[in-house]
């Protein structure tokens, strides 16, 4: 391959420019964290969801949450959003007449809202008192209310709007889905995955679920497919149904560094309220990058303090000398 001078200069310029750009974007950024090999997660397949809300009931029972009614006549559990009283909610995308499932126009689709258990979670990164933790093995993001100060930085920073505070209590606390860690400790699976009748909410190892989602994407729409229920790889009877025309992507594989709860849908994810056009790196990687660059071993502040002390000492000393001199003159 021969390159003349002109081309070479052009290439070099582009290369320098590109590297400049990337270094600019990454200058103060740490690596986004990687998912643990034994991480557990969930695959929510909106096309399988029938909106029965069994998961909402099971969630309330498993976590001892109260009924939340937004009706004038409180009869049913009708939360509008996850809240201090609701950790999991099924929402409805509806357009036009809303007749056809998983259709963008005149259609409807369900969406399950709860913690996505990010691979590199903002809430864990921002919590000043380690009240949000991410399990090193399972990757479950848990909240420990006993040390929480209620600053609500987790609420503010979560890109998925998940941690919720109990504003109407004198001694409120942060509430969020903890992926039924207490049930998993007993060898059970999260309540919502346990009751889901169609396998729309499927529990499993993140690795397995990723492979399962790939298989679903590769299957031909309309073909019969055997959908596992409950826990991936368990001996529960699966069920067979036609494969839907999926979006060509599984949400959560890369968004904001990846999430352990992944979504499949037949309609675009932004219609389901998931943030799209987001970077593949996590936001904490930026914020912590800045923070750790500035405060590594407190080196920079220490040096700065040394310098400041010296200068201030010199300046105040000089002033005091002048002052003393003038006082002496006066006396």
């Amino acid at each position: 391959m021969t390159v003349n001078r002109r081309q070479f200069l052009k290439m070099a310029a582009t290369g320098v420019g590109a590297s400049l750009c990337t270094t600019q974007a990454q200058a103060l950024q740490r690596e986004t964290l990687k998912v643990s090999p034994d991480a557990v997660g969930m695959l929510y397949d909106s096309t399988l969801c029938i909106g029965c809300k069994a998961c909402m009931v099971a969630c309330k029972n498993a976590n001892g949450m109260p009924v939340e009614s937004t009706d004038v006549n409180p009869m049913w559990d009708t939360p509008l959003e996850t809240s201090g009283e609701t950790l999991n909610v099924i929402k409805l995308y509806k357009n036009g007449t809303g007749e056809h499932k998983d259709q963008l126009d005149d259609g409807f689709a369900f969406m399950k809202r709860h913690c996505l258990h990010c691979v590199d979670p903002s809430c864990v990164s921002v919590c000043p008192v380690s009240a949000m933790t991410k399990d090193a093995v399972t990757g479950i993001v848990e909240h420990h209310k006993d040390r929480c100060i209620g600053c609500r930085y987790c609420v503010y920073s979560c890109p998925f709007g998940i941690p919720k505070y109990e504003y109407d209590k004198a001694f409120g606390q942060i509430q969020k889905c903890q992926f039924c860690a207490h049930l998993q400790a007993k060898g059970e699976i999260p309540a919502c995955c346990d009751v889901c009748p169609t396998g729309a909410t499927l529990f499993g190892r993140v690795d397995d679920l990723k492979k399962e989602s790939e298989r679903r994407l590769q299957a031909k729409p309309g073909d019969r497919y055997v959908f596992p229920r409950g826990k991936f790889g368990s001996d529960r009877p699966p069920h067979e149904a036609a494969i839907a025309q999926y979006q060509e992507h599984v949400y959560g594989l890369k968004e904001l560094g990846g999430t352990q709860i992944m979504y499949m849908s037949a309609i675009p994810f932004d219609k389901l309220g998931l943030p799209v056009n987001v970077p593949d790196y996590s936001y904490p990687s930026q914020a912590e990058g800045i923070q750790h660059t500035l405060y590594k071993w407190m080196l920079a502040p220490a040096i700065l303090l040394g310098g400041l002390s010296y200068v201030v000492h010199r300046n105040t000393q000089k002033k005091d000398d002048e002052k003393n001199a003038s006082e002496r003159r006066e006396s």
Binding site: G51, W76, K91, K94, P197, A241, L272
Partner: peptide, 21 residues
């Protein structure tokens, strides 16, 4: 085979994706 759930009537009221809060 599992059936599709055709319609949503009370108490099956669903919150929209973006409710005003």
């Amino acid at each position: 085979e599992l059936s599709d759930v055709r319609t949503q009537t009370p108490p099956d009221q669903y919150p929209g994706i973006n409710e005003n809060i």
